[in-house]
């Protein structure tokens, strides 16, 4: 019994280490995007927690807040997919074009958020 738990613990540790090493191999700009995604998700979680405490009275504000965070996360992930050099499907896509699409989409998202917020 102890051996299997030890092996699972070893496995878990090995897993984390390999994940860590694989992740640190990613280029810097992708890491920036990942940081951005983490920030957005974190903000969303804070808002959900706040809603659980206070109640959902201005529901449209809650929705717009949460969805703006989720939206930015999703769009950043899309950007990451398109910019990632290991992605063979997007080999021919210039990163400037990807970033321009990303900016456009974010503009639309924030416009809608501002409209829905109040």
């Amino acid at each position: 019994m102890g051996k299997s738990t030890a092996t699972t613990k070893d496995d878990a540790q090995a897993l984390f280490r390999s994940l860590h090493s694989a992740y640190s191999a990613t280029p810097t700009n992708l890491k920036i995007i990942d940081l951005y995604v983490v920030f957005a998700v974190f903000t969303a979680l804070i808002q959900v927690g706040y809603m659980a405490i206070v109640g959902s009275f201005p529901f449209n504000s809650f929705l717009s807040g949460v969805l703006s965070c989720v939206g930015t996360a999703v769009l950043a992930v899309c950007l990451r997919i398109q910019v990632n050099k290991e992605n063979k499907e997007f080999k021919d896509l210039p990163p400037e074009r990807a970033f321009a699409d990303f900016v456009l989409c974010n503009l639309v998202l924030h416009l809608v958020i501002m409209n829905f917020l109040g």
Binding site: N60, S64, V77, I81, N115
Partner: peptide, 30 residues
């Protein structure tokens, strides 16, 4: 494929937001 993700995920987020903007739908969108 990642194209599926790009096609689907922004649509859901933006689409839900935009649908909630229309007064008839409102919060029914979620």
């Amino acid at each position: 494929s990642s194209r599926l993700y790009i096609a689907y995920a922004p649509l859901v987020v933006l689409g839900t937001l935009l649908a909630a903007l229309v007064p008839v739908v409102g919060f029914n969108a979620v």
